Simulated assay, not measured.
Amino acid sequence: MRDVIVIKALQQINEQGLKFTTAGLAQKLGVSKRALYQHFNSKEDLLGAVFDSILNDLRQQISRIALDEHLDSVEKLKALMLASPKALGPLTEQVLNDVRRFMPNQWEKFEKYFEDKWEKIELVINQGVERGLFRPVNLTILQKIYMGTVEKLSDFNFLMQNNSTLRNAITETAEILIYGIMAPDCRDTHPSAQAL
């Protein structure tokens, strides 16, 4: 029952934000509020379980990608950058913003996940440099570019104004970071590209 509650709670969170009520959740589940509190001590405890489930799913994906010997460095890098929750489903951009603003203890867990993910990204980049797939770059600057971009792209209003989703925006970011903006045919022939 606990897993069912967590899944339904995520749906409520994505539909109503963090302001959803446990009474409304209990009604959707067809159980009493008391039944919810047999599994969770409070709404905050329930939210923590939802976010922990999402982060555990993401950590497992990141580990699988990093250890996958069938992927080359470019494929691994792209997969790491695009990892998103699969088991429960993703959080909306608005909810992520609300977690950042109103639940700092939970947001710290997300930040720890981002740090762990970046360590794996750096490892893949370094392997790619050793194999000649990537040119050496300042990884501290690249991290700032990537993390800063993801943070800015997570802005719900920006995504709505540009008729985009966070997944689409991060996919585009990954493409730009991995392949740049120069057309593939021009990279080998343009004098400026050869100087880089």
Score class of each variant (00 low, 15 high):
Asp57Ser: 05
Lys86Cys: 06
Ile62Trp: 01
Asp68Phe: 05
Gln61Leu: 03
Phe102Cys: 15
Lys112Ala: 15
Ser73His: 12
Glu111Cys: 01
Leu139Pro: 03
Phe114Tyr: 04
Ile121Lys: 01
Met147Ser: 11
Gln94Asn: 07
Asp52Gln: 08
Asp116Asn: 09
Met103Pro: 04
Asp68Ile: 03
Asp155Arg: 07
Arg135Phe: 11
Pro90Asp: 04
Leu58Asn: 00
Gln60Tyr: 07
Val124Tyr: 09
Ser84Trp: 14
Ile121Val: 07
Gln60Thr: 02
Pro85Gly: 08
Lys120Glu: 11
Ala49Gly: 03
Asp45Pro: 13
Asn126Gln: 12
Gln94Gly: 06
Glu119Leu: 10
Leu46Cys: 11
Pro104Gln: 11
Arg100Ala: 15
Lys117Arg: 09
Gln143Lys: 15
Met147Cys: 03
Ser154Arg: 08
Leu142Glu: 01
Asn56Gln: 06
Gly48His: 07
Arg101Ala: 15
Leu96Ser: 05
Val124Met: 05
Asp98Cys: 13
Gly48Ser: 07
Asp45Val: 05
Leu67Asn: 14
Gly48Trp: 01
Leu142His: 03
Gly132Met: 14
Asn105Ala: 12
Glu69Arg: 14
Trp107Ala: 07
Thr140Gln: 14
Arg64Glu: 00
Leu80His: 03
Arg100His: 14
Tyr146Leu: 06
Asp52Val: 13
Leu71Lys: 09
Lys76Ser: 06
Lys120Arg: 04
Leu123Glu: 03
Lys152Pro: 13
Pro90Leu: 09
Ile65Pro: 00
Arg100Ile: 04
Pro104Arg: 05
Leu58Cys: 00
Val99Met: 08
Leu80Ser: 02
Val150Cys: 08
Leu139Ser: 10
Pro136Glu: 12
Lys76His: 07
Glu93Asp: 14
Met81Ile: 08
Lys109Pro: 00
Ser154Ile: 02
Asn126His: 11
Ile121Ala: 07
Phe51Val: 03
Leu153Ser: 06
Leu46Ser: 10
Ser73Cys: 12
Val99Ile: 15
Leu91Val: 04
His70Gly: 14
Asn56Asp: 06
Glu93Met: 11
Met81Val: 05
Val50His: 00
Lys86Glu: 10
Leu133Ile: 12
Arg59Gln: 01
Gln127Ala: 12
Ile125Thr: 02
Asp155Thr: 07
Arg59Ile: 02
Gln60Asn: 11
Met81Pro: 01
Tyr113Glu: 12
Leu77Gly: 02
Glu122Val: 02
Ser53Met: 03
Leu71Thr: 10
Lys112Leu: 14
Leu47Trp: 01
Arg101Leu: 14
Lys109Leu: 13
Phe134Met: 10
Glu130Leu: 15
Lys78His: 15
Ala79Met: 02
Thr149Met: 15
Ala87Ile: 02
Leu82Tyr: 11
Asn56Arg: 01
Phe114Arg: 02
Gly132Glu: 07
Phe134His: 09
Gln60Glu: 09
Tyr146Asp: 03
Arg101Asp: 06
His70Thr: 14
Leu47Phe: 06
Phe134Gln: 08
Val74Leu: 15
Ser73Asn: 13
Pro104His: 09
Arg64Ala: 01
Asp98His: 05
Ile145Leu: 06
Pro85Gln: 05
Glu69Ala: 15
Lys152Asn: 15
Lys109Ala: 06
Phe156Cys: 10
Ser73Glu: 05
Leu47His: 01
Asp57Trp: 01
